[in-house]
Design a protein around this nucleic acid. Structure first.
Lengths: 185, 185, 185, 185
DNA sequence: AATGAATGAGACTTCATTCAT
DNA sequence: AATGAATGAAGTCTCATTCAT
């Protein structure tokens, strides 16, 4: 079962057949997988849930610790990039799953809606400037995924990860900053 | 043959089997496809090339017409979003191909390198601020793809496309802007 | 165990897998079925026996009450059709079992031999005319099953069942009647 | 393709898997069967059609040659039994297919409707007596199948087949004969 | 250039059965 | 008496590829 995640991380969504997963799990046949899960979708959904629990445990405290919309955006981005150092396989698998589940997945849509809402409330609070919250959410979640996926493909030192996270957060913070006046919140 | 592009656009990379393509092309057998192309990779590579020609014809003039690093970045982004209105099927197909080809594809790497180089030279010229060119290139190309893919899935009015393009370009321009002083170049 | 009969009646012999039966029986595993029965054949044979007891309890008294070969033939046919009104599920299941067990089953061969013997002794007693007892037995038992199966698929009113039974019995009685002379026995 | 019919005849509907058919046809894999037929249902439907052509070629002339409702009924029954001598495998296969297709099949319902209609028009013409046409049709088609199936399981001499056919036809003719008066038509 | 048939591998799923607990 | 996990086989189906015609 963790085998499924491992296989997706190693071989990718496309190659993650029941055979491969069964072999990785030390099972002698694919029958057991069908026995435990209603179908491939069910298995993959279970994997997503499992991974989200793991990643949430790592990221959520750091996000919650941040105060203010801008700081939270930065915390999210940096935590997500740092996550690669802790759970590279899970990250690889999740991003592959997200990529191939497309817009059907709750995982994608949930995060997208979260970002959009965060931008909107932040704009109302004066923490962010004027921009299309939806476009920003779309672009930044996907961009974040790409950076994370690249990092996960060949995991760098923690320091390098931290630097990348900071860089990326800088970009997003700058892109969403209020126009002219000084600080806010 | 254009059929392949159409099928990928409609059914997606995963479902784009030789059978499906042959049927869409009016061929009664998949043999012809294997006859013309060395294999599936070859066919897909040919599709990428074909689509890039089409999209290049639309985008390149607009990019070339822009003067200065910032304007070119904006031109690229806006042209790419507007492209959805002109060639939605090709855009859908190309993005699906890119997504599934991963980092093996020249198309991805080429564009990535192009962006990175553009950022670097722009920084040297003072057009852009200080940031990690590679991280920005990764994040922005993928973010752009996501916005474009979403637009292509349900093509909006040209005016709306233009607005989205402008919004996205604004974000990227702001994220990469020089720190304090006014204009440059 | 009654669950097996119910499942066969509802889903048919083909779909009556251990899983389905276990689920219908409120069992969480198929293991128990294998524990109680030597194999699938054993289970099905047990079902046949069980059903035959139930149907026998309904039919036998009516057959025994009839006097004379002709009356007994009529009683058997009519009782069998009326049985549908009392135990539709059991009837459905039994017929499905008979159909799929083919000529291996004792149930089929027993009834066939019974009919054949009944015709032969009836012919000797002058109750029936001249005809091939075996052919008649074969044709009439199967014909009876077909009528019963059709009735069991969509159970009609008791009155309608009685009518069908009478009609069918009429046909069989007429087909087996002595040539010219009047009554017999 | 004829292989499918042969396998059904030999091993029965239940065991007629693609593997078995492929092996019998000299094919190295089951892929070809799926290539030619949309699915199992499609293949079986094709078999039914094929067999019906063969049997129709044998039976139809003999039925058409008969004059009057009674003679046609007799001709149908006798031709069907004699058919076993000519095409035992096809007969075995068709009956197995009919048995397992149940009431979904056009083959079953078509013949049933044919018999029912024949009885009804014959009754109107005075060729048959008073009885429920539907019940008779159901019983006699199934009874005929049973006799034919038994004969096909262990094909007897042509003379014996002819005798069985005559016996069965006698039964059905007698069962459906007009009440008292002499000949008709 | 095109067809139609064939191949071999692999996909997901279901089944009857076994067994330790 | 019951559970839950495992097995191994078989089932239908799809795929990319090959090849004679």
């Amino acid at each position: 079962m963790r085998a499924a995640i491992a296989v997706i991380a190693e071989a990718g969504y496309l190659k993650a057949s029941f055979s491969r997963i069964a072999k990785h799990a030390g099972l002698s046949s694919t029958g057991m997988i069908s026995y435990h899960f209603a179908g491939k979708d069910d298995l993959l959904a279970a994997c997503v849930t499992e991974i989200e629990e793991i990643t949430g445990a790592f990221m959520q405290p750091r996000i919650d610790a941040a105060v203010g919309h801008v700081a939270q955006l930065r915390a999210y981005v940096e935590a997500n990039v740092d996550l690669v150092g802790e759970h590279p396989a899970e990250v690889r698998a999740l991003i592959d799953l997200i990529k191939n589940a497309g817009s059907r997945s709750d995982a994608v849509n949930g995060r997208l809606a979260l970002f959009e809402e965060h931008f909107r409330t932040g704009q109302a609070a004066g923490a962010f400037g004027t921009f299309d919250a939806r476009t920003a959410a779309l672009s930044f979640t996907s961009g974040l995924d790409a950076v994370v996926a690249t990092a996960a493909a060949d995991v760098p030192e923690p320091a390098e990860l931290a630097r990348i996270g900071r860089e990326l957060a800088d970009l997003y913070v700058r892109a969403t900053a209020p126009e002219s006046t000084g600080e806010s919140e």
